[in-house]
Structures are given as structure tokens and as C-alpha cells.
């Protein structure tokens, strides 16, 4: 069944927030797929819509936010319009989620064992003792030493990196097809970051889990992802294989983003490239291409016509620079 379908397929997703000052479009028509065992990195500045995309996929957009359009399919099954109770059963069982801060993701008043067993028994028919055994196996799998002893500890008795491992174990409880990792390493020390990233990679490889890795850390993306989506102002500017996008970005914004990564190989006297200006607020996204006020290659068409994603070699890029088709006259006028 799932041979034909990607694990996650998002089509023209739109998410809006209804506020007193009108409707804000946090996600404005994005489409992407993640295949079995694939890691898709999602990068972008704060407010580009990375985390909102993750929340939309797992069905945790709270009012005043709402999914305004588009479709989300999980292994061929549409999940964006499921009733709340059915969506709850998808969460944790078929989609696991990992949040940014392991210090606050765990309920401080419950033992790790209680939180793991509760999650396992919510999604499976295991007995309490079988669930406990599975919980110990999970902790061993995410690399917690002496799991049979540590399992009855409280969250505050673990270090930050160990807590993130517990969080990952909790996301893995029911062997989900997809894991959404929302900035899983941002709150951790650099040395611990590498451990968590290699753990995620290994789990994805061994279980064939699709991973959506949301981060603003290009280093983590280059290290982990198979493909990368660069988001800007609620849209995907460019998506493609991670090597291509990092080494040969097409979209001017992606070029600027890659240029802003410090490199030891380059001449150290060379200055880092900055992208002038800042991302527009959701209430003030310019017409046409949202990047046009900051774009070094801007031309007239960018100010009036919104660029649609165009397939260009292995990338898909939303930029008029790569549009080979004849310019539509009404758009230029």
C-alpha cells in the first residue's frame, strides 16, 4: 500500500491565524513529500512558518489558528480533516513529535516510567508489565545507560541531553511512520547536539521512519537531511537534495542563507554575506514575491506576480529568475 505513497504528502497547505487586525497567513500554499526513511530538513528564519507546518501536520494548530486549505496525507490517508478523536489516535501512534526544549517537554511531577507506560498503553494493548518492558527497551535504544534503573527517575534527575533522549523515546513509543522534530537540538550543548542528531539518523535508518527536521541550524541540516526545504514568509522558496541546495542554491534567499554560513576553508578575511533587511511580518507581506524588497536580483515582475514553484534540475524553486516560459504581459503591466 505505502509503496506508491510517500509517508507524508502535503499539498497546497494554508494555515491562517484570525486576529483582531484581520487574517494572517502563516502558511501560504506549501507542498512537499517525505518518503519512507527520508529526512527532510526544513530551514528558515524565525517566523517563516517552519514550526507551524509541523503543528499543522500533527493536527495541533490551536485557535485562533486554523488550516484554511490544502491537504495532508499520511501514507495515502488524508488526515487534515479527521475528527478530533481519530486525529488523537494518529498522534503519537503514527506521527511522533519532538519539541525544542527537553527541560520543559516532560511533566516534572511524573516518573519517566509513568510517562512512557502511559503513552505506550494509550496506543497499544500491552499489559502494564509488557509496557514497562517495552519502555526499558526504548530507553536502551535511545542510548540511556542502565535503563532498568533509570526508568523510575523523575525528569529533573536527568541531564538536558538525556532528557531529550527520553523525549525521543516517548515519540517512538508506538513506532510511528513519521517523526516531526521541531528544533530538537537548539536547547542543547554543541557536543550533545551531535549525539542527538546521530541518534535521530540511526533511528530513521533502522526503522525506516520518515523524519521532518525543523531547524534554523544549517550545520544540522547539512549533517542529517536527505533533502532540504528553505522556507520564507510562509512559503517554500526552494526545495531539493541537501547537497545541491547547500552547494548550489538557486533562489536568491537560499543563496544568501548559505552565504551566511561561516566556513573554515574560505579565506578568513572574506566577510560573511548578510541578507539586508529582515523577513516581513505576517501582517505586511509585500505583493508579488515576498522576498522582493530584500532580493539583489529583483526585477519588475517580482513586485507584482507571485512566483510559483518551478522544477529546475533536481530543485524546485519559487523564483521568476528561473522561469523559462514567456512572460505574461498582464503581469508585467
Amino acid at each position: 500500500m505505502s509503496v506508491l505513497h510517500p509517508v507524508l504528502s502535503v499539498r497546497d497547505l494554508r494555515v491562517e491565524f484570525v486576529t483582531r487586525r484581520g487574517i494572517l497567513k502563516a502558511i501560504d500554499g506549501i507542498s512537499f513529500d517525505i518518503a519512507k526513511g527520508e529526512v527532510l530538513g526544513v530551514v528558515g528564519e524565525s517566523g517563516a512558518g517552519k514550526s507551524v507546518t509541523g503543528s499543522a501536520v500533527i493536527g495541533l494548530i490551536d485557535p485562533p489558528g486554523r488550516i484554511a486549505g490544502g491537504e495532508i496525507h499520511l501514507s495515502g490517508m488524508r488526515i487534515d480533516n479527521l475528527p478530533p478523536e481519530e486525529m488523537r489516535r494518529v498522534r503519537g501512534k503514527r506521527i511522533g513529535m519532538i519539541f525544542q526544549d527537553p527541560l520543559t517537554s516532560l511533566n516534572p511531577l511524573y516518573r519517566v516510567s509513568e510517562q512512557l507506560i502511559e503513552t505506550i498503553r494509550t496506543h497499544t494493548n500491552l499489559s502494564a508489565s509488557a509496557a514497562r518492558k517495552r519502555a526499558i527497551d526504548l530507553l536502551a535504544e535511545v542510548g540511556i545507560p542502565a535503563p532498568d534503573k533509570r526508568i523510575d527517575s523523575y525528569p529533573h534527575e536527568f541531564s538536558g541531553g538525556m532528557r531529550q533522549r527520553v523525549v525521543i523515546a516517548l515519540a517512538l513509543c508506538a513506532e510511528p511512520e513519521l517523526i516531526i522534530a521541531d528544533e530538537p537540538t537548539t536547547a542543547l550543548d554543541v557536543s550533545v547536539q551531535a549525539q542527538i542528531i546521530s541518534l535521530l539518523k540511526r533511528l530513521g535508518r533502522e526503522h525506516g521512519t520518515a523524519i521532518m527536521l525543523v531547524t534554523h541550524d544549517m550545520g544540522v541540516i547539512a549533517e542529517t537531511a536527505d533533502r532540504v526545504a528553505v522556507m520564507y514568509a510562509g512559503r517554500i522558496a526552494e526545495i531539493g537534495p541537501v547537497r545541491d541546495v547547500v552547494q548550489n542554491p538557486l533562489h536568491p534567499y537560499a543563496k544568501g542563507l548559505m552565504g551566511a554560513i561561516p566556513s573554515l576553508e574560505n579565506d578568513s578575511s572574506e566577510r560573511l554575506v548578510q541578507i539586508p533587511g529582515s523577513m516581513p511580518r505576517l501582517s505586511a507581506i509585500p505583493p508579488g514575491c515576498p522576498f522582493n524588497p530584500r532580493c539583489p536580483n529583483v526585477f519588475d515582475r517580482c513586485r507584482v506576480e507571485r512566483p510559483d514553484p518551478i522544477q529546475h534540475s533536481e530543485h524546485r524553486v519559487a523564483c521568476h529568475l528561473y522561469d523559462q516560459s514567456p512572460v505574461r504581459s498582464e503581469a508585467v503591466a
Binding site: 488523537r88 498522534r91 513529535m97 519539541f99 517537554s105 503513552t119 515519540a171
Partner: peptide, 13 residues
Amino acid sequence: TDYIKFARARGLT
């Protein structure tokens, strides 16, 4: 809090 959001993301009732 985050742990309530995480509890929801785990599909607890």
C-alpha cells in the same frame, strides 16, 4: 506549558 503540548502530541486522551 510545553509538557501539555507534548502530551497532546503523544496522542494521550
